[in-house]
Design a protein around this nucleic acid. Sequence first.
RNA 1: GUGGGUAUAGCGUAGCUGGUCAAACGCGUCAGUUUGUGGCACUGAAGAUCGUCGGUUCGAAUCCGACUAUCCACCCCA
Length: 429
Amino acid sequence: MALLKRPNGTRDTLPSETSEWQALEGFLCETAHINGFHEIRIPTFEHTDLFARGVGETTDVVQKEMYTFEIGKHSYTLRPEGTAGVVRAVLENGLLNEALPLKLFYILSCFRHEAVQHGRQREFHQFGVEMAGSSSPAADAEVIGLANQILTEAGVGNASLRINSIGCPTCRKQYSEALRNYFAPHTAELCATCHDRMERNPMRLLDCKEAKCKVIAKDAPSILEYLCDDCKAHFAQLKHNLELLNISYTVDSRIVRGLDYYTKTVFEFIVPDGDGELTVCGGGRYDGLVEELGGNPTPALGFGMGLERLLATLHDQGITLSEPDPCCLYIVPMGEKAADMAMKLTNQLRKEGSAAQTDVMGRSLRAQMKYADRIGARFTMVIGDNELENGEAVLKNMKTGEKITMKLGDDFVDRFCDIEIADRLAAEE
RNA sequence: GUGGGUAUAGCGUAGCUGGUCAAACGCGUCAGUUUGUGGCACUGAAGAUCGUCGGUUCGAAUCCGACUAUCCACCCCA
């Protein structure tokens, strides 16, 4: 029978990798908490309508990348991102009635059916935060500041922040009109996708990678010239706040973001990747989304951070977050009586929280020592007839080769734990 | 979705002008080098229908086609 393989674009996280994920997730939770964000967990799938309305009908994500399935009369979709579901949960559970601003974070997997390649999977993991209730640029700065803190403290030394404002519905409408007017004379030269963009979302015209379109887009008007007074002031204040926080940034008026719900501030953190660059974190303000999903008008903002991309970036820089914890004591029994003793001792050690192991393969002493070395056991101890008779055994430090004679009495476990802790401390220095 | 590259044991590779290839090498795994201490070395073993299906041929890992997977570019995004 042929081996079944995992679906394209998914990944197995192996035992050698999970400790790093655990470390990363722990670090993210802790940093979020320090910043006053609390975790929320939401379903893996939602009603399809939620994403159609929340993410936007015109987006690529909704139009061609969603995992949608029908059960009975209902249509469900695996979440392609976190924000829509979180906002839905906030409204459904009345969280906006609690002290504002509401500050939430999440770690979850997202699903998008798109072409798989480097830095892009069909199931991937995101850390994200959402903050609701504040329309102040101070909130924008706080959210961007959190992303910045995470990247910096994780050790990403080469991330750069780009910000832009895409205005509110009022100024965006005017800007879209201006763009259409600008591109209209060039319609014939534009690529097919851009014709589509003219209709649906003119701001994407700026983002086209076609050489021809790029040339035309180069001199297109900038959104920043079309911002209304309110949006202009908001953006100016955000820049001031970022400077206050000592966060360097560049303004990039071509940042558009692929999800329809953004208003005013949009931003992304970018890291070099081969010849190009990769967005490791993207987000912005979405003042219209809560109302769009049926709540009272409430300003909000957030970001999503791609965890696979973040880990890959760290690895590129030679950073490993955590190594798996090895076995601390491997007990080598010789003979049946010794095996009984080893099993009991191992069990006692484990009850005290010590990662002890012993033979379950019936191996020779030599083979057991090899195995202990292979799994990185820090100590080994041989128990045979002599030891059972004398009530003493030799504890061997596998790294230094140092040997300590230990009494096998009731307090063995306690004494071993002391030695193990001392060894661990010595290793750290 | 469009275009291109790749596809050989758990991993990394060699072989690819078709016939000593019922496939080799390194790492890893297992056993052993005389039942009392691992790393090194040595010996041996297990493990591959050469991605899948079909075609050309007396004969295909080797040539051709389709499919699938994977990588890259575009699109888009975390």
